[in-house]
Write a protein that binds this DNA or RNA. Structure first.
Lengths: 240, 240
DNA sequence: ACAAATACACTACCATGGTAATATGTCAAT
DNA sequence: ATTGACATATTACCATGGTAGTGTATTTGT
């Protein structure tokens, strides 16, 4: 590990890296979201141990919902669980990122095609407003906000296409790519490029040109190829 | 119900509708597979109650792995869980079947395109042998065997394309369509049609013609549209 | 007789205890 | 100094107990 800094924070502890739990709401789902969020934001680093007992203590819940959350995360490919040995944050695996990209591209290209074929005024209006918020986040250099609006953009397409399960699948595989994406956010040029691609997609939707919409969506989603190559160069320790 | 014979067995009981569990192997996964299989084969009928306690008694395991299995099945959309009220086998929902079809088509059309682009001799050989077994099952009127080989056919494509997660996604959404498919198996003409479409796909793969392969895969997967319309006419009670 | 209120049974959900398997640290033998 | 066996601690896994929320049946008031 190259991070052996002089004042390295005690990152083996999970304190303050997980949001707290409201016992009034369903606990299992909250635990899942909390851990997932921390993994995707890299607050929990790859290879870090995640024991049922430790997590249940930190979150103030029992081990059962923690266990259920870890099972779900292992199905997402975000943690590796070795029975009777331990559970660990999964490293970013190049192969799985590329596979996630393939799946997402196949699915979301089809989605945007359907959207373009059935587009109407209210959808286009909604997307334009979303684009405005993206531009705002871009101009204000608030990359986290941009990520939120980006998510909303892609969700809006699935919602209009009436494909809630499609969105679930996209979200699932997207988890494999999000850790890569957060590291590309500091680059304003890259983010600006994403924004312009969104605009192109909306233009094609408004023109009801499914073929062009698919083309731009494909190129948009293939941006991750550039991101991952530069990331593999700059932060190889995240990979296994 | 057409099977309301004079000596109708007490089908509200779960006995003999679930395979038994080997305590040596991981229990949770076995419970999941057992229940899922029974649902997809319609041995467990839509709307039937599936209580943790009852299932744990029948299967001879504790409630914990049963609960975990039911959670997974609810994510698959195969059971509906109402907190503090009960868990029930989900009815076949037209909307979800159509959505599953859309997702599967988008994904598997992309898969077969990649496969055709990189096809080699050993793959084609393997697919041809699979087709032989399909033909055999067809000639012997063993529709269950045909289903197994059909599954193997589609899996082989994902495996060659090196997309294990893609296969997992396909399998997941496929669960929504399988209950529709098993009811179409008694029709030998329909099954023969599926076989011929498989042959066309393999021919296109052998010719390394991705475009034609995609076309035939698309038409193949759209067969479910015909199945579902006739099913909605013949067995409306399966739907909600 | 009928409607509202109450008691009861049942559910999924969460908490906790017990167990076999694995990893690690200690110590003895060579 | 190195290797082997053994003791100990830790892990995920499964079993079971407790609880709040939800339908249903019964009872009660009119």
């Amino acid at each position: 590990m190259s991070k052996a800094g002089i004042l390295a924070k005690p990152s083996n502890s999970l304190t303050d890296q997980l949001s707290s739990i409201d016992p009034k709401l369903p606990v299992g789902a909250q635990v899942y979201s909390s851990i997932r969020d921390s993994i995707l934001n890299l607050r929990l680093e790859p290879k870090q141990a995640l024991s049922e007992k430790e997590l249940s203590l930190r979150l103030g819940v029992s081990r059962t919902p923690v266990r259920e959350a870890l099972i779900k995360l292992s199905e997402d490919g975000l943690v590796d669980v070795f029975p009777q040995r331990g559970t660990f944050v999964a490293p970013v695996r190049m192969k799985e990122v590329l596979e996630a990209q393939f799946i997402r591209e196949a699915l979301e290209v089809a989605v945007v095609g359907r959207v373009a074929e059935h587009a109407n005024e209210v959808l286009v209006q909604r997307l334009r407003e979303n684009l405005k918020r993206q531009k705002l986040a871009l101009d204000q250099s608030l990359p986290d906000n941009f990520l939120i609006e980006d998510e909303a953009f892609h969700y809006a397409l699935c919602e209009f296409a009436d494909l809630p399960r499609g969105w679930k699948v996209i979200q699932n595989v997207k988890g494999q790519m999000d850790r890569v994406r957060v590291l590309s956010l500091p680059d304003p040029g890259h983010v600006a490029g994403l924004y312009l691609q969104h605009v192109q997609i909306v233009d094609a939707i408004e023109a009801r040109d499914a073929e062009v919409a698919r083309l731009h969506m494909r190129r948009h989603l293939q941006q991750v190829f550039h991101t991952i190559t530069s990331l593999l160069r700059d932060k190889p320790q995240l990979f296994d």
